[in-house]
Write a protein that binds this DNA or RNA. Sequence first.
DNA 1: GTGAAAGCGCTAACAG
DNA 2: CTGTTAGCGCTTTCAC
Lengths: 345, 345
Amino acid sequence: MPPEAPPHWSSQRPTIRDVANLSGVSKSTVSNVLRGAGRVSGSTRSRVLESIEALGYRPNSLARDLVRRRSNTVGVLLGDLANTFYAELVKLLELRISEAAHTTIVCNTDGRLELERARVEMLLERAVSGVVMLQFSGDASVLDELAAAGVPVVVVSCWEERADCVAVDDRAGMAAAVEHLHGLGHRRIAHVSSHLVEDSTRAARYAGYERAMRSHKLEPLMLDADDWEGGVARLRAAVTGPDRLTAFAAANDLIAVRLIDRLESIGVRVPGDVSVVGFDGTDLGAHSRIGLTTVAQPRSRLIAEGVGLLLEQMRDPGRSGAPRHVRLAPELVVRASTAPGPEPE
Amino acid sequence: MPPEAPPHWSSQRPTIRDVANLSGVSKSTVSNVLRGAGRVSGSTRSRVLESIEALGYRPNSLARDLVRRRSNTVGVLLGDLANTFYAELVKLLELRISEAAHTTIVCNTDGRLELERARVEMLLERAVSGVVMLQFSGDASVLDELAAAGVPVVVVSCWEERADCVAVDDRAGMAAAVEHLHGLGHRRIAHVSSHLVEDSTRAARYAGYERAMRSHKLEPLMLDADDWEGGVARLRAAVTGPDRLTAFAAANDLIAVRLIDRLESIGVRVPGDVSVVGFDGTDLGAHSRIGLTTVAQPRSRLIAEGVGLLLEQMRDPGRSGAPRHVRLAPELVVRASTAPGPEPE
DNA sequence: GTGAAAGCGCTAACAG
DNA sequence: CTGTTAGCGCTTTCAC
């Protein structure tokens, strides 16, 4: 054991101190060149840079975060990664977030409030510098905790008055779906939703559906996708007989596609016998085999605007003011799952 | 301003110190009850717990991580979240990881080595306690860096000799696909892959395909899915004429489904004119409209075993020994995208 | 321009 | 069983 070995060298990962020693300056100076802060002479800077290189020094975020009291990470809360709409959003998010020099933590809540709470608690312990919710239970206490901790929050893809938010106009989108079906001559149109659709979104989409139905003096009918696991008979009954349903406006693409699966499994053809419209505009519905007519959400813009709002909040910690809301227009994409109904105009 | 206010109270988030003061014990004791370490008397414990409650104290992971030099997070590297196979794996992973009291960081590399490197660097700075790679470039330096930092790594769903790994037998799986097609009477069978499929997996699946073809004295033919963006003519040529292909064994479900999209767009019917087999067993292929015959991977087991290996490594830092490999058996799931070919047996 | 010093909030020996 | 004592590696005034 060489007695010359500086006490701090040799073992372990090199620290900022090792770099300082090697380049004959103080920790502060190294810190300055690392952060590009303060004025550092060119010669010192390059000497430090060389040492960093030589030592294979890598800054320790843990230490930096502790003193900064923020971890340069953003938490993403969502309901279900297996729904490709969310997976696609997360992919876009991760890219944007890492471009902003931050790390992405994902939290799949399965739409369960308890899990949402637990995950938020965890994010708070980790001192995330921001949270984006792709799905939100609507529970006020969650928002309060986040606000109390001064953590920027933005809700993306579902509407939320109490926080910065960017989402499409669900009511208008759903209404467009109904108008499309109505224009094709459908009159008995049901809305199909599921508990997996987050509350406020489910409500808004249903509202859009209902309003459109009533404007045509049609009776709204809400069906629950979760009910059909075994209830094949019920589904069959719904699409047979004189008063049979001829069209479905689903709350999202996944529900729509699964509905088609079920319908065809009992011999009902789409769009031959009934028409189906989805919502989201996922790649899933775009496959030619599925050819789902759907109300597409502008995913990239959703994320771009959402991250924009988040970064603004992060930049400006003292922000008070009312929450900002961005409402994007959805777009009806007509494909092959809808066809003329019994009363074409 | 009350002069009695303990200097540390009042502003900011309460710290372990505030809890100590309020309950009249030392920081260490609080720390002990928090961690369930050391012996703490029941009365002290409950007093501390009360203070925690009263103060709304929440431990600061940043500080804990700094001293522990590990962040209780695990990084997940993957190629493409928009591929539902990976999204589904990430969902399962996040669940398992959070059950193990860890946080999940996702990194989408888009299959680009530069991004993979950058992300790993970031994970190292963050001192993650483990990394699971759902896709891996195969770059040795990446593995070396991780090893040098003493970070447990497990590669899941693609084969990797140099690290702990759990994956299905790609060659056997692909061979099963070919056997299935051959058994149906197909002879001209092409393999379709893409650069989005990570290298070693692509190689293994092709190898399985080739071996099976040769065992039947058939000529292997490799097609590139990325080529067809515009090359409709080429595809049409491949499935027309006397020597036309009658079946495709795709490297994964996504490629298979897109292939079907293209095939049908040029008027070729599946399985009427040609048969198609996928690989992965994603939910995408399971939709009745698509009904993709595929080689399914046992996703839950993949993740369960993978996380198991990771946790073992984390538990036992000094682990040397050879990497451990778990090879799972894939399972052919026959659905509606394959039908008898020109030479049924 | 550069360095010294004082922590960030918590853990982990080691005494008592 | 509980308290004391050192830091973990880095940022950040504030002197020099």
